[in-house]
């Protein structure tokens, strides 16, 4: 699944819906096209990662764009979302 270019307020609800539809599936999210990662979508992604972890299913972010990596870093998260508790 490819992540959209803009991950802001307007994208958060759609992103959550799309992820919920894939619940239980192994997931590799392609972040190669992301131009902007905002706080709300970061929350959605981390919540998803935690959810997948609880469900015991593999969840990964692959190919993060510089903007994605930069946004995650500025917000204290790793591009793989791996360092949050």
């Amino acid at each position: 699944m490819k992540l959209p270019q803009i991950l802001d307020l307007a994208a958060a609800t759609t992103l959550r819906t799309q992820l919920m539809e894939r619940r239980g599936q192994k997931l590799a999210l392609d972040g190669g096209e992301v131009e902007r990662l905002g706080g709300l979508c970061l929350q959605v992604l981390i919540a998803a990662r935690n959810q997948w972890r609880v469900d015991g299913v593999d969840f990964r972010i692959v190919n993060p764009s510089p903007a994605f990596a930069d946004g995650a870093r500025l917000m204290g998260a790793d591009a793989s979302l791996g360092d949050a508790p």
């Binding site: 307020l9 958060a12 959550r16 709300l40 929350q43 981390i46």
Partner: peptide, 20 residues
Amino acid sequence: TLDTSWLPNLDGLDPEESYC
């Protein structure tokens, strides 16, 4: 440092609420 301790899992998440 990001504090996500109040963040619910995706199924209980309001995508427009602020948790972090």
